[in-house]
Simulated assay, not measured.
Amino acid sequence: MKTTNYQKLRDAELAKMTSDERALYDEAYAKAGLTMRMAQLFYDARTAAGLTQAELARRMHTTQPTIAALEGGGRLPTLDMLERLAQATGHSLEIRLSA
């Protein structure tokens, strides 16, 4: 696989970081990934249930802008919100760890 200029620049910047800076970077990168997976989860559950953002918000006892923020990756849901999403879309919440 060919290395792009972006990858070369990114690798060079990462190599300049101290171990503490790299740890902070890795943590932020992982959190961003989690936020986007949660955004996709909300969108997929809502659309599979045939709901608009407004209808999902009503069923979850929240607001449409809150749903939009969750689906846009601008906000990470709480466990309570995940449970309400499951109930509102006819699912059950299951949390598991995987390797």
Rank of each mutant, 00 (worst) to 15 (best):
A49N: 00
K31H: 02
D44W: 02
S92I: 06
L93F: 08
E27P: 07
R75V: 02
R96E: 13
G33A: 13
A49I: 01
K31E: 02
G90K: 00
A57I: 01
T78F: 14
A54H: 07
L82D: 08
A45Q: 04
G74D: 15
G74V: 03
G33D: 10
A88C: 09
M38T: 05
I95Q: 04
E55V: 02
E94P: 09
R58G: 03
G74K: 11
K31W: 11
T52P: 08
T89F: 12
T52V: 01
G72V: 10
A69S: 12
E83V: 02
L82S: 11
D44I: 05
A30M: 10
T35P: 05
L82H: 05
E55A: 09
A49R: 00
L76R: 12
A57Q: 10
M36D: 08
M81Y: 00
M38F: 08
A28I: 14
F42M: 01
A68K: 03
T66V: 09
G72L: 07
T47Y: 01
T78C: 06
A48R: 12
T47G: 14
A54F: 14
H91M: 11
A57M: 07
A30H: 00
G90T: 00
A57W: 05
L82I: 03
T52H: 05
R37K: 05
L82M: 12
T89L: 10
L41T: 01
H61Y: 13
L51K: 12
R58D: 13
Y43H: 01
G73P: 05
G74N: 13
A54Y: 15
E55Q: 04
T35I: 05
R84M: 13
A69E: 08
M36V: 11
E94C: 06
Y29M: 15
L93V: 11
E83R: 02
G33P: 08
P65V: 15
A49P: 00
A69I: 15
A30I: 03
L56T: 09
A57D: 06
A32N: 06
D80Y: 06
L56G: 15
Q53W: 08
L97V: 03
M60S: 15
A45R: 00
A32D: 11
L97A: 10
T62D: 11
L93S: 13
L34I: 03
E71M: 03
Y43N: 01
G72R: 14
G72M: 12
L82E: 06
T89D: 08
M81A: 03
T63E: 12
R46F: 04
P77G: 10
E71W: 00
T62H: 10
R46H: 07
R75K: 08
E94F: 07
T47H: 01
M60E: 05
R58Y: 13
Y29S: 08
T62A: 12
A88D: 00
L70Q: 13
A86L: 00
S92D: 11
L70P: 10
A45V: 04
S98A: 13
L93Y: 08
L85D: 10
L34V: 02
S98Y: 05
S92Y: 05
R37D: 11
E55H: 11
A54G: 03
A32K: 08
I95E: 15
